[in-house]
């Protein structure tokens, strides 16, 4: 409980202290990336099902809501539930055949799905504007407040991140969360204790997809301009890297991974050209040396040293 209060306090304080619009936007993007990582963490970190096409759901959320608001003049608030349900259905239809696969094949399948969606954004010009994307997406408003610039979008996004944390934590700490983790450990044994494993996999995939769609919705109406590149394969790899960095430590790992991967390119400008290579390297290094993720790995190392210091005098006696 006190963790949550601290979290709220940090959000409010940050919103008060940071006034530079550029920094605020960066922080807001961290929030959006956290939503993406949180969803994929449930699929990959907890249920152990790899997905290399998570950016597709991010993009579908952004494009669906943008198209509804631009072409049909819907209010974003009306477009929101429609968008979430639509992307949820897409995720369901994709998951049904896809999650029969496992390991590399699941990786390939989800990768192909991400590619297909990306090419639809790129090629269906009459609808999506092709390469140049969609402009003039209406910002979110609530009475006199516009969630386009400044602290308002920051608070909105982080408010939603906060709620998503609670949702994920409650899921993890429940019958469903245990079933997801058991699936990760042994699918055969999960089935043997009576878990409908295919249904559970589909459900968690849809959950992750809908959370990504929510992130896409927020992103589109905040930036008011979208183009396919934001939702390409590199983005999917980036989300995977966030989850791997965060590890299965907790939902906090997702936040840490998202923050690191949002800030790194800002700090290191050379990054841009080698982005893909660097993510690849990070992934390989973490998988080899800290298979539990960076967060868990660092905690383990810390605990290892702590316990060694405790046992050291004993071993001298012996």
């Amino acid at each position: 409980m006190y963790k949550r209060l601290v979290f709220i306090a940090v959000i409010v304080l940050t919103g008060q202290v940071v006034s530079n619009p550029y920094d605020l936007q960066l922080l807001t993007f961290i929030g959006i990336n956290t939503l993406l990582a949180l969803g994929l963490n449930m699929v990959m970190g907890y249920a152990g099902q790899i997905s290399l096409g998570h950016a597709a759901f991010f993009g579908l959320g952004a494009y669906t809501s943008s198209l509804l608001t631009i072409h049909l003049d819907w209010s974003p608030w009306l477009a929101l539930p429609f968008t979430l349900v639509f992307v949820g259905i897409v995720a369901f239809l994709v998951a049904l055949p896809m999650l029969r696969l496992s390991g590399y094949y699941l990786g390939m399948g989800t990768l192909a799905f991400g590619m297909i969606v990306f090419f639809i954004f790129l090629q269906w010009r009459s609808l999506t504007g092709g390469d140049s994307g969609l402009i003039g997406i209406p910002p979110l408003t609530l009475g006199p407040i516009s969630f386009e610039f400044g602290a308002a979008p920051f608070y909105l996004v982080w408010g939603i991140v906060f709620l998503s944390f609670i949702v994920c934590e409650r899921l993890i700490d429940s019958r469903i969360g245990r079933a997801l983790r058991s699936l990760h450990d042994s699918e055969r044994a999960s089935a043997a204790v009576g878990i409908n494993t295919s249904r559970l996999k589909v459900q968690v995939f849809v959950f992750g997809g809908v959370l990504a769609a929510l992130a896409g919705f927020l992103y589109a109406h905040m930036v008011t301009f979208i183009s396919p590149q934001t939702f390409d394969f590199l983005m999917s790899v980036k989300i995977v890297t966030m989850v791997v960095i965060g590890g299965m430590a907790s939902v906090w790992g997702s936040l840490f991974g998202a923050a690191l991967l949002t800030l790194l390119p800002e700090w290191l400008h050379v990054f841009a050209e080698y982005e893909m290579i660097i993510y690849g390297l990070i992934l390989v290094v973490i998988m080899i040396f800290l298979p539990q993720g960076l967060t868990r790995g660092l905690l383990d190392i810390y605990e290892h040293f702590k316990s060694r210091r405790k046992t050291l005098p004993k071993s001298h006696e012996g």
Binding site: R178, A179, R181, S182, D185, S186, A192, V193, G194, I195
Partner: peptide
């Protein structure tokens, strides 16, 4: 074939899946 990362108690709880 236990669920290795789960505690003993959690293993038994997962065993109750069909009764919850």
């Amino acid at each position: 074939e236990l669920f290795g990362s789960l505690t003993a108690l959690e293993n038994v709880l997962v065993g109750r899946h069909v009764r919850t």
